[in-house]
Amino acid sequence: MSDHTKLEVEHELEIAFQAKIDDEQKVEPKDWMPEGYRKNLIRQMSQHAHSEVIGMQPEGNWITRAPSLRRKAVLLAKVQDEAGHGLYLYSATETLGISRSQMIEALQTGTAKYASIFNYPTQTWGDMGAIGWLVDGAAICNQVSLQRTSYGPYARGMIRICKEESFHQRQGYQIMIELAHGTPAQKKMAQDSLNRFYWPSLMMFGPHDSDSAHSAKSMKWKIKRETNDDLRQKFIDQTVSQIEYLGLEHPDKALVWNEERNHYDSSDLDWDEFYSVINGNGHCNRQRIQHHIKAHEEGAWVREAMAAYKQKKQLKNATNAA
């Protein structure tokens, strides 16, 4: 085939592919897909997986300090779920022809990203409430919309994850209720956590659509189903009454209902801070990756021993068979 005809064939495949997407059909692992689609998916899905895995750290930080046995069990179960979600997502991403160890290497060398929210430190028990309620809440907004993403394994993973995550947000909100309706000191703790985590949670939806590098292409391919700004607006709207119920002060003083838009108007976010944290100035950027590398390196001898044991066993079986 000449290069020219190759290009033509490619072009036709792309047209057929887009028609399939437009028709709301799912793309499955062995299907033909444009290289850009595959790359874009690997980027988004592995980032999502890494976020679950790195996200274990800020909350894992409080398992041994949880103030009641029930809370300890709930938090542990939740953090364990996150490991599970990371694993679902890694395995869904592996269907695109990249191995988990390649993804992990990309995370550890900094070529792959994770959600910047996990670069913020967890300082009090209230932060366990705020993270479950706001951070998981924001993540769920995004994930609910991703249940309709065009890549089959990703969509199915999201359905499973959403089902499990609904308890995460509720347990967080319940922590907040206990604190906000508890002693004055507890209420103060709740307000402080809300103040610190509200803004970074809104930033989790990513930059404005106009500034988002991958947004347009992702929407066209239906990898993303709703824009960053639309999802963020949804989250802002739904959080207002939740803050009210807690009897806490809303961190956004400029928040006002807009009858015409049927949405809340709110302050613009501090994008300088957003990029500053992404670019390494968060309290925990280096710590999170170093923690991951340390666990990985400390586990190396275990993984080697497993491989050696397996080899010995195979050899034994082969000798017995002979």
Partner: peptide, 9 residues
Amino acid sequence: MTTEKLELF
């Protein structure tokens, strides 16, 4: 995490 040597199931 090098799980390269581990089998995928």
